[in-house]
Amino acid sequence: MQIPEPVHENAAEPVVLVVMGVSGCGKTTVAALLADRLGWPFEEGDALHPQANIDKMAAGHPLNDDDRWPWLEKVAQWVGERLDRRENGVITCSALKRSYREVINRRGSGVEFVFLAGTQETIAARLASRHGHFMPPELLASQFAALEEPGPDEPGARFDIGPAPADIARNIIDTLGLA
């Protein structure tokens, strides 16, 4: 992933941060902190899943591409609505594959992918202590198997999940020049 040119609050063009990574990497926590600190609208991408997807994952079955396309279209729609309104925003989405990110960033501008990266062992430990989420820890391996880390030609940056969420959010804001 390339380190983007700084995106300033008063820039002419809006930006939508897509906080991405496998389940359990901290997308929701970090994205909520970013949205709060920046004063930007926030959407939990999981809330856009069709009920059939939630039921499938809750039953321990990984999603396939056919399951994901309608959901990714909803994520892309939310992103597009922000950009059409010339608003900044923050949304979570696993965005595991390049093809998924291409759907979300179909305009070719206005999106910055914030990739939260960690080891499978670290994230498995987090998932083991998480309760009340439809995504069971047993599906983590399928997420890592599907993950195509963003390339240097994609907009955004990679952030390690080791630090505290508040520190990760601060690092994102500083790295992307959002302060």
Rank of each mutant, 00 (worst) to 15 (best):
A124L: 15
R158G: 01
F113M: 01
E149A: 13
L83M: 13
R82I: 07
A141V: 07
P163I: 14
F113Q: 01
G118I: 13
E149R: 14
I104G: 05
D160A: 15
C93L: 11
L127M: 15
A164W: 08
F113C: 04
Q143G: 13
N88Q: 12
V90K: 06
L127E: 09
F113L: 02
G151T: 12
A157F: 13
E149I: 09
L127Y: 05
L116A: 01
R130D: 06
R107G: 02
Y100G: 14
P155L: 01
F115K: 01
D84L: 12
S109K: 12
N105G: 04
G108H: 04
D160P: 10
L140Q: 00
E148R: 09
I161P: 08
V90H: 04
R82C: 14
G132F: 05
Q143E: 14
G156A: 02
E102H: 05
H131E: 08
K97F: 10
R126K: 11
A125W: 11
A128F: 03
P163W: 11
E81D: 15
E121C: 00
Q143N: 11
A128P: 02
R101P: 13
A157I: 10
R85A: 14
R85P: 07
L147Q: 10
E112L: 15
P137A: 13
G118L: 10
E154R: 00
E112P: 00
I104L: 07
D153I: 06
G156V: 04
Y100W: 12
S94F: 07
L147N: 11
R85V: 00
R82P: 08
L116P: 02
H133V: 06
L96Q: 07
A125T: 08
V103L: 15
G118R: 10
A125I: 00
V111F: 00
D160S: 15
M135E: 07
V114T: 04
Q120S: 13
A125N: 14
Q143D: 08
E81Y: 12
G118P: 11
S94P: 06
K97T: 08
Y100K: 13
G108F: 07
L147T: 09
E148S: 12
Y100T: 09
L140M: 05
I104N: 06
R107L: 08
E87H: 11
R106Q: 15
E81T: 15
A124W: 07
P137W: 01
R101Q: 09
R98S: 15
S109P: 00
R86V: 10
E138Y: 02
T92P: 04
E81G: 14
G108I: 03
R85F: 02
N88F: 13
F159R: 13
V111T: 03
P150C: 05
G162R: 10
P137T: 06
R82D: 05
L147G: 11
T92I: 09
F134V: 10
A117V: 07
L83P: 07
G110F: 01
G89Q: 03
T119K: 07
